[in-house]
């Protein structure tokens, strides 16, 4: 009797969040997939049904792969996918180059200062993402703070065009995603046993060698977690390239959004999303493996 009540309670605790996520996270992808196979129509909603029913019988199945064919033939999409992957990869490396020394510095600071530094990393994370990107617009514009300072100092005579360049996009992304790189790295580095480095030094390793042979290999899970936390969402990034990026080279998130809002072509937008998801399946699975390992190790 008690055992049955226990099982029922257990089922409920699993079932409620599971049900929510199945309905609102997994099912949408299936619908997305279905619509990506249909045809655009001038209607509400603006797509044709896949299945035609008459007298309770299926009379027709309309599957259109044209949307996908589009994605591979139209250079707009191909270059947008390529550009997005490139931006994501470069930004990830930049975040790592800046974030690793910071995480290391925080992890090796005295405990009292460590909390303060960590708070300084997390603080921007709690403030509006949109407003932080916006803050850069004030700095990067032709009549923005940076150009004004450089003009005033006589370094340049005419303002440098920084807005609407790749540079601005990288800057905005690194700026916004840096905490996502630092936090998992810090979590990893903070757990390292200090005596390992002492042992390495005792065995004759110079600090650089000790770092390369001990600290760096041990921090690989942290590096991977941070890299995936940056790379995956950046592939689909929409706000930063829209506000800071080039008008002539769109990222795929922007393309999706334009197809959906401006062209009202839901099937193509769905196909764009599906292909993006397909590209990201491997990194997402890798991220989940990493999360699982981390929680099992504890």
């Amino acid at each position: 009797m008690a055992a049955r009540g226990l099982r029922l309670g257990r089922l409920l605790v699993i079932g409620v969040p599971m049900g929510w996520l199945l309905l609102f996270f997994l099912a949408p992808f299936l619908i997305d997939f279905k619509i990506s196979l249909s045809e655009v129509r001038l209607a509400i909603p603006p797509y044709a049904p896949l299945l035609e029913w008459a007298d309770g019988k299926l009379v027709a199945l309309h599957l259109h792969l044209t949307n996908y064919r589009y994605l591979f033939t139209d250079s707009l999409y191909v270059s947008a996918y390529g550009y997005s992957l490139k931006v994501a990869a470069v930004s990830t490396v930049l975040c790592l180059l800046l974030g690793y020394p910071m995480a290391l510095g925080i992890a090796r600071a005295e405990p009292a200062r460590r909390n303060l530094l960590l708070m300084l990393v997390i603080l921007p994370f709690w403030t509006s993402f949109l407003l932080r990107v916006y803050a850069w617009m004030g700095l990067l514009r032709n009549n923005g703070l940076i150009n004004n300072l450089l003009l005033w100092a006589g370094v340049i005579d005419t303002p440098i065009q920084m807005m609407q360049t790749d540079f601005a996009v990288y800057l905005g992304i690194v700026y916004s995603y840096l905490p996502f790189m630092i936090l998992p790295l810090y979590t990893n580095l903070e757990k390292h046993d200090g005596t390992l480095l002492e042992a390495a030094a005792d065995l004759g390793a110079k600090p650089l060698a000790a770092f390369l042979r001990v600290t760096l290999p041990l921090s690989v899970p942290g590096i991977l977690a941070g890299a995936l936390l940056v790379f995956i969402p950046v592939v689909g990034e929409y706000v930063i390239p829209t506000l800071l990026g080039r008008p002539d080279q769109l990222m795929i998130g922007r393309v999706l959004s334009d197809e959906f809002f401006a062209n009202r072509d839901w099937p193509v937008a769905s196909a764009v999303a599906m292909l993006m998801l397909l590209l990201l399946v491997a990194p997402i699975v890798a991220f989940q493996r990493l999360q699982n390992n981390a929680s099992e190790a504890r």
Partner: peptide, 20 residues
Amino acid sequence: LTTAPLVMPEVITGLSLLLL
């Protein structure tokens, strides 16, 4: 299902939810 939303690009989640 619980960890994927942490990294899922927002455009995908947003579009799919709207379609749902």
